[in-house]
Amino acid sequence: MISYLLRHLQVFFYTLGQLARAPIASLMTIAVIAITLALPTGLYLLIENVQRMSTALDGGAKISLFLKADIDDTAAAQLSKRIRQALEVATVEYISPKQALAEFKRLSGFGETLDTLTHNPLPPVLIVQPSATLDTPQKLDDLVKRLRTNVEVDLAQLDLQWVKRLHGLLQIARRGVWLLSVSLALAVVLIIGNTIRLAVLSRREEIEVIKLVGGTNAFIRRPFLYTGLLQGAAGALAAWALVSLCLSLLAGPIGAVADLYASNFRAEGLGSYGIAILVGVGAVLGWLGSRIAVGRHLGSLEPR
């Protein structure tokens, strides 16, 4: 009777031990995968947000159209109207030579000296603010070229240098994130591969028995593949949670900075499409890792 109870207790603790051991092991794996995937995901979000922020600031990039000196107020107004109707611009502001001179006097402090000029040397100017839909330097460049084709325009100028540089940097960063992603994806495959390898080895007796009663390799592989797939997907979900947490911690400071620039820019998370891709990638990597690990070890686990 006592030995019977003892056996029961043994089974009980054995089962309990298995339950307690397995979840912790898989939680650890999931945590490692989460951190591994969170890194490229976070960097990707950073780049996307900087890109969006630079676009928001592109709004500040104005195009100055210096018109030919013989263009009078009416002609300038007509041109301004044409531009507003035909092209993707937000606003067009006209500064007549008179206004320009007045402003120059006020700002330069050369007031009296300039009074001695017999005629106004300043050209009429249109200040064009591109529409927000023009979100790349390329599109802005195209707009400038089209503005230049107007006969009234003498010179069209857009200071794009800093925008171009930023976009160039972002391009490099994006490529860097890609390379990082590839190597970290490899890391995920190896992590899961190793976990599954240990799982396979710890169940070698079971695998041998299954082979002896006619189980195919596919049958033996299946639970391991599911384990890898689930761990990968769970790791990806946890990575998303991690990134979201970081983002929510940064939301306050980012909002404060954006307010300083009178911008309503707010950092954005992955979005449901992005989450789906992340989880899908995690699942595929997990599946791949376990497929490789099981494939490598199944052959060596023939019954003896």
Binding site: V213, G214, G215
Partner: peptide, 10 residues
Amino acid sequence: IPYFRRDIGI
């Protein structure tokens, strides 16, 4: 082999 073994009890 797995299918072959299904016809043999061991």
